[in-house]
Structures are given as structure tokens and as C-alpha cells.
């Protein structure tokens, strides 16, 4: 087992997922299978991982840049209207206590 129950509980908590006992058990099994599957890479042979830079992006391009020119979206009101909670021009969220 690469992934254990406590890993799943921890990640679920960070991701704000409310899993029941059955789901925790199922997720532990499934995530473990996925991670274990990655071991297939070992079949490639004695490759030194240090020789292979990790792939973060598949396209060989530099990050495209945009001109610094303001353009009002014209959608601020529409976005506010769709919010679950609103007071005047603010979004409302459950009280955050510092």
C-alpha cells in the first residue's frame, strides 16, 4: 500500500470533501491503485530520474505576454448578480473570524 487511509482523510479535509466511511475506504483503494500504476514507469529500465527534467508543460513555448492596457470587462454587475450572497456591491460570505 502506497496510499493509506490517513492520507485520504488528510487530503479530503484540505479539499473540503466530506467523505463517509465507505467513500474513504473506496478512495484509499482507488488512489492507491492509481499511484501504484505509476510504478509501470520502472519498466522503462534503469533510467536515472535526475537526467530527465520533470515535465510541467507539454508545449515548448514561453509564456505569452499581454499588453498592460485596462479593459473593463463590463461583466462586474452580471458576476455580482450570480453570487449566492450579496450586499450592495459586496459579496457576502459566512463570517470570517480572525
Amino acid at each position: 500500500m502506497t496510499i493509506e487511509r490517513k492520507d485520504v482523510v488528510h487530503v479530503a479535509k484540505l479539499a473540503r470533501l466530506d467523505l463517509n466511511e465507505d467513500e474513504i475506504e473506496r478512495m484509499t483503494r482507488q488512489v492507491d491503485q492509481i499511484v501504484t500504476y505509476m510504478r509501470s514507469l520502472d519498466e522503462l529500465g534503469p533510467l536515472d530520474p535526475a537526467d530527465v527534467p520533470p515535465t510541467a508543460h507539454v508545449l515548448d513555448v514561453s509564456c505569452p505576454l499581454r499588453a498592460d492596457e485596462p479593459r473593463p470587462s463590463g461583466q462586474d454587475e452580471a458576476i455580482l448578480e450570480r453570487a449566492p450572497g450579496r450586499r450592495d456591491r459586496f459579496y457576502t460570505v459566512p463570517k470570517v473570524i480572525e
Binding site: R66, D68, E69, P70, R71, P72, S73, Q75, D76, I79, L80, D88, R89, F90, Y91
Partner: peptide, 27 residues
Amino acid sequence: KTATKLFCSCSTRFGEAPNSNTCPVCS
């Protein structure tokens, strides 16, 4: 000191009406 946000073209001006410099990207 840019005129717009890091990843969208909304203005960065200080002191505007709340949620007026917003778009689907920064929201």
C-alpha cells in the same frame, strides 16, 4: 505599478467602488 491585473485586463486602480474591477478571470 501596472495599470492592469496580473492575468486579466481589469484595472488595478485603488479606491474604486467594490467589485467594479472584476471579470470572469479574477472572479
